[in-house]
Design a protein around this nucleic acid. Structure first.
Lengths: 267, 267
DNA sequence: GTGTAGTTTGAATCCTACG
DNA sequence: GCGTAGGATTCAAACTACA
């Protein structure tokens, strides 16, 4: 039988293909310094699309359908956030990123699970997608919530001085400005199309890692996608465990982290 | 007996002193075009905060911001948001402003009540209060959620062109930049101290009103404070009903709106 | 009136080590 | 758990005082 502690050692520095809940359950209590999570927010839509025999989706009573869908999303969110709470050290912190579709639900769940919010951060996009039909404001930002597991712990890691230096000698604020992930940084598949729909810019993850971890800390990412969190962790000498349930992303992430590592050794 | 419709007429253009739930219950169904709500934030401050120069920060310690628990806050929030849902027209919209202390809970409640989020807006503050102890990021923004009552209604008011003109010919984005409400705009009491701890800048309300109402629309504000919503509504020829449970604020709001009206006639 | 220096202040979940 | 001493900690804008 493999104990949780043995699993942990086998997981260190790995990109693991599998269901994040199943993997997380193999991680011991209070073993992780930082969680970064970029969860899916379109479960509702997926559910509606794959539901069989549902010929008139538009005719379904909206309120009931919405409640059902939000309920599923909440159940899923509470499950993985609850596991994150368990596997974090008491002074460990978690970052969750989302948009208005899901981030309000996630924020309330974080609070209900006992996490204590330290900040919310606005990632303002230099180059957002315009609102083509002109019926709303251009959605030009995403929100990150940063929270500590145990409210009473004041010794969470926040590298205040490094952040201040990064910001021209002034305190780093809650508004961050980065362009979307495009160009050479954006991973492509064999046919040249974007490999992942929501690849985050490396600069965003660099700031997260620099701000809230120390060298040698263990970073966990349950929805790693193309592994941006792993690249940032590796660059700054942090350990990591990444998980994704899509094998294409896992392969891409492994390759990408190796590349980043080799580039770092050469350069 | 006074019917709801008669109450409505008596309420138009008024700043009403009373419990917002009691007042709202006297408003007929689907009578309101826009709700703007700046509810208590449930800040849960732990200790007093001393600046580096040893002076004390004048923090929000008002009774109206005291709640026993998240549960109490949720119960209160669902009650007033539910009333807002009832009194809004199906294509009416609601704005709610908050910070990470409360806005995630409010956002989830909005969704659970059937509101459909159109945008979230980030008010980035030019001159926020610094983080004096250097233990977090400077909290430099607040969040506004904009939602329509009925998801299926696409005919909510959004003055796309006016917003575009305001933004130098480019689509108005979800990041808005305004300074805090200070100086002459900030209302003072007889002793010269700030009358309200959280007075919002008029420019913020002007943009809200300009973006999401037409001339003659009815705007409702259940936590009007010093009446910034009323001033903006009056300036742009919108009707309004404002409510606050603190008589000092109500008096100040009435006086302020009259002043603004007279200034407009003179100027 | 003008320019400069000093003061005030803002929705804040704002410390740590030791006894 | 508590009390206390020690030590590190702030940005921009508006306002006031004064030359």
């Amino acid at each position: 039988m493999v104990t949780k502690t043995e699993s942990l050692k086998a997981f260190l520095g790995q990109v693991i293909h599998g269901d994040c809940l199943e993997i997380m359950r193999q991680v011991p209590d209070e073993a992780v310094d930082l969680v970064f999570a970029d969860p899916p927010y379109n479960l509702q839509l997926q559910n509606e699309l794959i539901r069989p025999n549902q010929t008139k989706v538009d005719a379904v009573d909206d309120d009931w359908d919405k409640f059902e869908s939000f309920g599923d999303y909440d159940e899923f969110s509470l499950a993985w956030l609850g596991e994150c709470h368990r596997l974090l050290k008491p002074n460990g912190t978690i970052w969750v990123i989302g948009t208005y579709h899901n981030v309000y639900r996630l924020g309330k769940h974080l609070q209900d699970l006992g996490f204590w919010i330290l900040n919310d951060i606005v990632w303002v996009k230099d180059n957002p997608m315009p609102n083509f039909r002109g019926v709303r404001f251009t959605n030009a930002h995403e929100i990150l919530i940063w929270a500590v597991k145990d409210k009473s712990r004041k010794d969470y890691t926040f590298n205040y001085k490094e952040m201040k230096e990064l910001n021209k000698g002034k305190q780093m604020r809650s508004d961050w400005y980065f362009p979307l992930c495009t160009g050479r940084e954006r991973l492509k598949d064999d046919s040249g199309k974007k490999l992942h729909n929501t690849q985050k810019p490396l600069a965003l993850l660099e700031r997260v890692i620099m701000a809230s971890t120390k060298e040698g800390d263990l970073v966990f990412d349950p929805f790693c996608g193309t592994g941006t969190t792993g690249v940032a962790a590796k660059m700054y000498g942090r350990n990591y465990i990444l998980v994704d349930n899509d094998e294409r992303y896992v392969k891409a992430a492994r390759h990408r982290i190796d590349e980043a590592c080799h580039r770092a050794q050469r350069g």
